[in-house]
Design a protein around this nucleic acid. Sequence first.
DNA 1: ATATTATATGCTAATAAGTGCATATAAGCA
DNA 2: TGCTTATATGCACTTATTAGCATATAATAT
Lengths: 140, 140
Amino acid sequence: MKTQQSTTFKAIADDTRLRMINLFVTSRKPLCVCEIVDALRLPQYQISKHLSILKNAGLIDVEKDGTWGYHYLIEDNSLNKMLITFLKKYLAGDVFDDDIKKLEMRLLLREDGKCVVGFVDEKELFKKLKDREKELAIKE
Amino acid sequence: MKTQQSTTFKAIADDTRLRMINLFVTSRKPLCVCEIVDALRLPQYQISKHLSILKNAGLIDVEKDGTWGYHYLIEDNSLNKMLITFLKKYLAGDVFDDDIKKLEMRLLLREDGKCVVGFVDEKELFKKLKDREKELAIKE
DNA sequence: ATATTATATGCTAATAAGTGCATATAAGCA
DNA sequence: TGCTTATATGCACTTATTAGCATATAATAT
C-alpha cells in the first residue's frame, strides 16, 4: 500500500527540492534549468536530477522549447492544489527568501518572457544587467 | 543548511507515519501506543519507532501516565499549525479512512477518557464492546 | 558536418532509512 | 520481591537516497 500523499511528501522531503519548489510557487511561471541553477547555485546535474524526481512524483512537468526546457508545477488536481496553496505559506525564511531574490534578478535577463542565456555567475549577471540598463537608457 | 521544513517533510514522508498523524489530526486527542497499534494493525515496535521519529522532528510529544504514554501533536508553533491544518484536508481516502474507523471503535474502550487495556485484536474488541453494551443495559 | 549549448542520465561510493526480532526499561500489581 | 504489562531501543539486514563525476542526447549555430 503506497499512497499518493506519501509519494508526494517523499518528493519534497529534501532541501534542494523544497528550494526548487519555492521558486515555482512564488515566481508563478515555468522556469528553465539554467535559471534554477543560477538561483540556487548548485551544479546543473543536481538540478536536472531533482527535477526528474519531482516529475516522477507527479508534481511538475516540462514543456520543451528548443534546447530549453520550461518546468512548471502541475496544478490541475485537487491534491496538488492543496499542497501548493499550503507550500506558498509554509516555505519562507532565510534560504527560501534569498533564492527568490536571486531568481528575480536572473529573470530580468529574459527577453519576451523567454530565457535567452545559459548559466551566468553572479558577476556576469550584474554585468549583463548593467548593459541592459545602458541599452534602455540609449533607447529613451 | 537544513531547514525545519525539510526535516518535517522527511518525518511525514512515510505511509505508516502519515497514517499515525492522520489518527492524531482527526481524533484530536492524545493517543497511547496500544491504541495506535490496534488502529493500524502493525507491530508495537514499529509504532514506537515511528513515534520517536515524529518526536525527533518536533511534531509530537508524550505525556506519561504510569506505563501508558499519551502522544499528541505539538501545535503551539506556526509551522506546525499550518501543517496540521493542511494535513487535516490532505489526508483522506481508503487507508486513512479505514484507520479512523478502527481507532474510533478502539477508543470506545476508554474509561474516563483513559486507555485501560493493552493490545486487543479485532475479535476481542468486538467481544469487549458487546460486554460493555450489556453492562450499560443492566444499569438502565 | 562540426562545434556549441542546454539538459538528461548512467555509474559509483557514501550515507540514511525501514523492517524484524530480541531484549531493555519501568510502572503497577500479586 | 517477583510478575505482568506498556513502551522503548539495540542490532543485523536490506533497500533507498544522494552527491559527484563523466558522458550522452538533442537542438542550434557556424
